[in-house]
Design a protein around this nucleic acid. Structure first.
Length: 527
DNA sequence: CGGATTTGACCGGCGC
DNA sequence: GCGCCGGTCAAATCCG
C-alpha cells in the first residue's frame, strides 16, 4: 500500500522516481525464494544515468538484503521491517541523487536562459523594427544537433513491465518502455552554429509579402514554430498545430462554441470557442483544420483567463516545459523577452527526450525543422507546431477519450466534420475527396486519412504519450501565452486582465499525446 | 428543460 | 465609399 502510494506520488511528481519500489518488490520476491544475491540484470539494462544512481545505492542495499535474507530464516517479520526500512533508505538515496541532477539541470537552464536573454536583449535593440521568427521544434533526439541545454533522461520505467498489472498502468503495457528515449533539449539554432544566430537574426527582416510567400509555400516540415508577429495592438495569440483526431484538443478548459466560419483559402471551417469555465472569461480559441494536412488541427488561443485554471491545466503551468516557452520568448522581436524574465517553471527531468528547437533564421535553418505559418492560419503570435509531416518525428495529439492509439490514422476521424463547403479551389477538390455540402464540413465516413506514412512514419506515433509530456507542452503554451499577454499589454498600455480584455492569455492544456519512443514504438498514455 | 451547438445575419477593420 | 473578410451575435435547433 505504502509503496503503491509512493509510486503514484512519484509518478505525479514528473516521474522522478524510477519504480524502485517495484524493483524492490521484485527483489524481495526473489529473496523469498532463497535467492540472496542481487539481481543486477535489470540495472544493466537501465540507462546510464539510472545506473549511476543504482550503483550509488546498491552496495548498501545488497548488503542489507543479504542480511535480511539471513534474518528471514529466523524472523521473517523482522526481515520485512528491515526491508521496508532500507527500501525507503534506498529511495531516499535515489532521490538525493536525482535532486542533485535536477539542481544542476536547473542551474544550467537558468544560466542559458539569462545568457540568451541578455544576447537577445542586445539584438533587439539593434533590430527593433524587424520581425524575426523564432522556431521551436519537437523532433526526435536522433535528429538533434548542437543542443544548448540537455536534460538527461532520468526516468527509467523498464520495471513497469515486471510490476503486476494494475489498472493504473495498463496503458503502458503496450510498449517497451525501457527503450523510451526522449529528452528535453533547448537550443537556439536548428543546425547552424550558435555564433551565427545573432547575425542571422539581425539580418532577417521578412516583409509581409515575404511572410505570405513563405506561408504559402508552407512545407510539410516538422517542428514547433514560434511565430512572433503580433503587432503591439493585437491580441496575444498562441497557435498550436498538432495532429488531433478529435474536433478539438482537450486542453483542460471548458469551451463553448459560438460560431463557425469558412475562412478564405481554407475550406475547412473555423470554429470559434469561448471559455466557459468562468462567466465572463475572455479567453477564446479558434480551431481549424490545416488545409495541407487535414489531420492537423490548428488551435489558436487568445485572451487571458479570469479564473483559476482547472486542476489539470494548473499542473501544467508549473512544469519544466515552461522553460521551453521561456526559451521561445527570447526572441528579440518579441517584447516578451523584455518583460517576461520571470519564467515560472520547475525544471524537472523528463522521462522522455523532447527537443525544443529554437531557430532564429528560418532561411538558414535546417528546413526539416521549420514550419511556415499557414496564411490561412490567421493566428498572430506564437505557433506551436507539434506535427510532423516529414515523417521523422511526430507528435500526435488525441483526445483522452480517443480509443485509437496507433501511428496510423483511423479510417474515420472523429474530428472530421460532417460536411464540407463547396470546393473553393481545384486544389482542394483534389486534396479532399469526400462529400461536400454547404457549410463546410467533411463527411466523417468519407474521410480516409491521407496519411500513408512510410515505415518511419509508422514510428511516428508521437513522442509524448506520456502525460508528463502532455503537461510539458501544455505548460509551454501556457507560459507563452502568459508572457505574450504581459508583453503585448505594454505597448498598448493595457494591463494584464485589466481594462482591455484583449490582453494576453494563459491557456490550460491537458492534451494526450501519443509518443514515439526512440525505438519507434508508439506509446500512449491516458490521463 | 437547460445547456450546447448550429447557422444566418450583422458589424467593424482593412484594402482598393 | 465600397466590397471583402474575419469575427461575433443571437435565434433556432439539437441533445442529454
Amino acid at each position: 500500500m505504502v509503496r503503491d502510494k509512493d509510486r503514484e506520488i512519484m509518478d505525479i511528481d514528473l516521474s522522478l522516481k524510477i519504480d524502485s519500489n517495484e524493483k524492490q518488490e521484485e527483489e524481495e520476491e526473489k529473496e523469498a525464494d532463497g535467492q540472496a544475491q542481487m539481481d543486477d540484470d535489470d540495472d544493466q539494462e537501465e540507462k546510464s544515468l539510472v545506473q549511476d544512481k543504482e550503483e550509488a545505492v546498491e552496495p548498501t542495499t545488497g548488503e542489507v538484503e543479504d542480511d535480511a535474507s539471513v534474518a528471514e530464516l529466523s524472523n521473517s517479520q523482522e526481515t520485512m521491517n528491515n526491508k521496508e526500512l532500507f527500501s525507503l533508505q534506498m529511495e531516499m538515496g535515489k532521490m538525493k541523487e536525482e535532486n542533485k541532477i535536477l539542481r544542476k539541470v536547473v542551474e544550467q537552464t537558468m544560466k542559458d536562459y539569462y545568457d540568451l536573454q541578455t544576447k537577445f536583449a542586445v539584438i533587439q535593440q539593434n533590430n527593433k523594427k524587424k520581425d524575426p521568427q523564432t522556431f521551436l521544434s519537437l523532433q526526435e533526439n536522433t535528429a538533434v544537433e548542437g543542443p544548448t541545454m540537455t536534460i538527461p533522461k532520468i526516468l527509467d520505467v523498464k520495471n513497469n513491465r515486471k510490476a503486476p498489472p494494475t489498472p493504473s498502468n495498463d496503458h503502458d503495457d503496450s510498449i517497451d518502455e525501457n527503450e523510451l528515449g526522449l529528452s528535453l533539449r533547448l537550443r537556439t539554432s536548428t543546425s547552424q552554429q550558435e555564433d551565427n544566430k545573432e547575425s542571422e537574426l539581425a539580418s532577417f527582416t521578412p516583409s509581409v509579402q515575404n511572410n505570405k510567400l513563405l506561408q504559402r509555400t508552407s512545407s510539410q516540415l516538422p517542428g514547433i514554430t514560434t511565430h512572433v508577429a503580433s503587432p503591439p495592438n493585437r491580441k496575444a495569440r498562441v497557435s498550436v498545430r498538432a495532429r488531433c483526431e478529435s474536433a478539438t484538443m482537450n486542453d483542460g478548459c471548458q469551451w463553448r462554441k459560438y460560431g463557425q466560419k469558412i475562412a478564405k483559402g481554407n475550406p475547412c471551417p473555423r470554429a470559434y470557442y469561448r471559455c466557459t469555465v468562468a462567466p465572463g472569461c475572455p479567453v477564446r480559441k479558434q480551431v481549424q483544420r490545416c488545409l495541407e494536412d487535414m489531420s492537423i488541427l490548428i488551435t489558436t488561443y487568445e485572451g487571458t483567463h479570469n479564473h483559476p485554471l482547472p486542476v489539470g491545466a494548473t499542473a501544467m503551468a508549473s512544469t519544466h516545459a515552461s522553460a521551453a516557452a521561456s526559451f521561445m520568448l527570447l526572441d528579440s522581436s518579441n517584447p516578451i523577452s523584455e518583460y517576461g524574465s520571470s519564467a515560472n517553471f520547475t525544471q524537472v527531468p523528463l522521462p522522455y527526450h523532447t527537443t525544443f528547437h529554437h531557430s532564429l533564421n528560418p532561411a538558414s535553418s535546417n528546413p526539416s525543422n521549420i514550419r511556415r505559418i499557414n496564411p490561412n492560419d490567421h493566428s498572430k503570435g506564437i505557433v506551436l507546431d507539434l506535427t510532423n509531416n516529414a515523417s521523422d518525428n511526430s507528435l500526435r495529439f488525441t483526445m483522452a477519450s480517443s480509443s485509437t492509439s496507433t501511428a496510423q490514422l483511423p479510417a474515420g476521424f472523429s474530428w472530421m466534420p460532417n460536411k464540407l463547403p463547396p470546393p473553393s479551389s481545384s486544389s482542394y477538390a483534389t486534396n479532399v475527396p469526400f462529400p461536400i455540402s454547404t457549410r463546410g464540413v467533411v463527411d466523417e465516413r468519407g474521410w480516409k486519412g491521407e496519411e500513408n506514412k512510410s515505415s518511419v512514419a509508422e514510428n511516428v506515433t508521437a513522442i509524448a504519450s506520456d502525460p508528463k509530456f502532455r503537461v510539458a507542452v501544455a505548460a509551454a503554451i501556457t507560459s507563452l501565452m502568459n508572457k505574450e499577454s504581459n508583453s503585448t499589454s505594454h505597448p498598448v498600455g493595457t494591463s494584464f486582465g485589466g481594462r482591455d480584455e484583449e490582453s494576453g492569455s494563459s491557456s490550460s492544456n491537458n492534451w494526450v499525446i501519443e509518443s514515439l519512443s526512440s525505438n519507434g514504438k508508439s506509446i500512449r498514455h491516458s490521463p
